[in-house]
Amino acid sequence: MINSKRENLLDTAERLFYSAGFHATGIDRVITQAGVARMTLYNHFPSKEALVEAVLARRYERYLQDLRAAVDNAAPGEAVTALAQRHCRWLETTPGRGCIVLKAIAEYEQDHPAIAEQGRRLKRELLAVIGDALERDRSRGDPKLAERLLMVLEGANALVPVLGAAAATEHLQGIIPAVLATAQGAES
């Protein structure tokens, strides 16, 4: 039962933080919508910042596990494509508000740099997954190419609120092969 209350708090906080923002969402709103007592929240998370950190870690782990599964199950030479397709599916099934991790970095950079650093660390983990996909595709894990692909994925995240998920994923699916082709041309 204790774990289910913790999960309920995390689910509620994630939904609220993503839709309204971190600073705009107070603890009172989280506990009211989760249907728990204030003490229940503080038994699991000693501060709002600890709750934010737990939400980010849990959400991003789900995302990275999903991407890793796509890479691991991809046909030879198709790991990056599989990763991009899974990222597109993530964008299409998540409300179009951009990346919660980038939002956290922006909101907490000044007043709670540890959360902003957690966000940067999570993005470096994504960069590592992209590097793994490149290595699997025999692209020798080119760090610059991994960074370019990260920029494309993050650009799609950022533009979902502007273009919509369908357009952002359509552009992403068109750009990834071009980035890979350019890199292969440079290797020749």
Rank of each mutant, 00 (worst) to 15 (best):
Q65D: 13
A158P: 02
P95L: 10
T40A: 11
A186Y: 08
R120C: 04
G131E: 15
Q110N: 10
R97T: 00
R6Q: 15
M151K: 09
E170M: 08
G174H: 15
T182H: 13
A186W: 08
D72N: 07
Q85T: 09
D111N: 13
C88Y: 02
R29Y: 01
K144L: 10
E107G: 03
L102S: 09
A167I: 09
Y18G: 03
L122P: 02
D66Q: 13
V179H: 05
R59D: 15
A57M: 08
K5N: 07
P177K: 13
L127T: 11
E53Q: 12
E14H: 15
V55L: 04
A57H: 06
Q173Y: 01
V55A: 03
I130F: 09
Q85P: 00
V179C: 09
A168T: 12
G185Q: 13
E53D: 10
P177F: 07
G185N: 11
R68A: 15
R124Q: 13
R62Q: 12
A70Q: 13
E109C: 01
I31C: 02
I100D: 01
P113R: 11
R15V: 00
W90H: 15
H23V: 13
D137N: 07
R15D: 08
L83T: 10
H87L: 09
D28S: 11
V30Q: 06
L9M: 10
L41Q: 04
R120A: 15
E92Q: 12
E92S: 11
V129P: 01
A20P: 00
L149I: 15
L41I: 03
K123M: 14
R136T: 14
W90P: 00
A24E: 08
V52M: 12
P161Y: 08
